[in-house]
Amino acid sequence: MVASYFLSDPSVLLSDLVFGLLLGCVLAVVAHGLNMIWGVVKVVNIAHGEFIMLGAYGAYFLNLYWGIGPLASAVFDAAIGFLVGYAFYYVFLHRELRGKETVSLQSEMVTLVATFGLSLVISTLALIIFSGNVVGIDYDPGTLLLGPVSVPLGGLYVAVVSILIISGTYLFLERTFIGAAIRAYSQDVTATELIGANPAKVASLATALGFAITMAGGALLTVFISVGINPLMGTLYAPISFVIVVMGGPGKMWGSLAGGLTLGIVFDVLQAVATPQIAFATGFLLLIPVLILRPEGILK
């Protein structure tokens, strides 16, 4: 089966590979918000997937009622996500983090479990409000034919936006004063004060940015899953995001892209040569060797 796949028409293989790369870009941006929060605030939001889901529904409803496309919806989602992120920081994280230099294992456990609870609350509410039906957005700008290789334009747009978002956050962290404060916080909380910034403000801003990116990522994702928006989609995209962030290394902005592309290609190629189940199982299990061999992520 595997052999026959590789012996088949090379243009099919190339198209698959291109699709894998595009998928990788969108998975990267979906995980990127988590990466930001994990890298800076050192907390993992287990309800991450539910906020992706909310972002996807945001795009869906904006499209349903006002005909807005997913790319434009991402902007609305980001604005909402920003506010939600602030609220999240002050409800879930502030009590555990304020005045502490490092996140203790106890705080880590508390936030893990509390956000696990949050994921259940949000997905249940979503089931009640949105019903369990699977919906999608009808958005297809066509296909670009590059010789024998076909590139879906929607996916290409999304990939470009994803890369813009990731490089944008990179530049923001490297080139601006606020970015420097966020980097300082991620390395040493007290250092934040030394450069004259308030740690809680920095941490909440980073969390808000993370949420903005997460929800925007949910909107972008809808282009790829033309019929796949549902209240429980978070249970798939959260673990995918965890794997991507661990692979790339929490806090490394380009790590999201490295992890996303790796996973995108693994999913895509294994789905073609084996089964979707094998593809998912392998993609998830990839986390284990990465944790053993390169606990700081695949990027230097």
Binding site: F242, Q277, F280, A281, L287
Partner: peptide, 20 residues
């Protein structure tokens, strides 16, 4: 693996198990 890494590794194993 400590802390969140253990938690996530265990989560991922459950998902892999399901697919397998």
């Amino acid at each position: 693996f400590r802390g969140v890494y253990f938690a996530i590794a265990s989560l991922v194993l459950a998902l892999a198990g399901y697919n397998l």
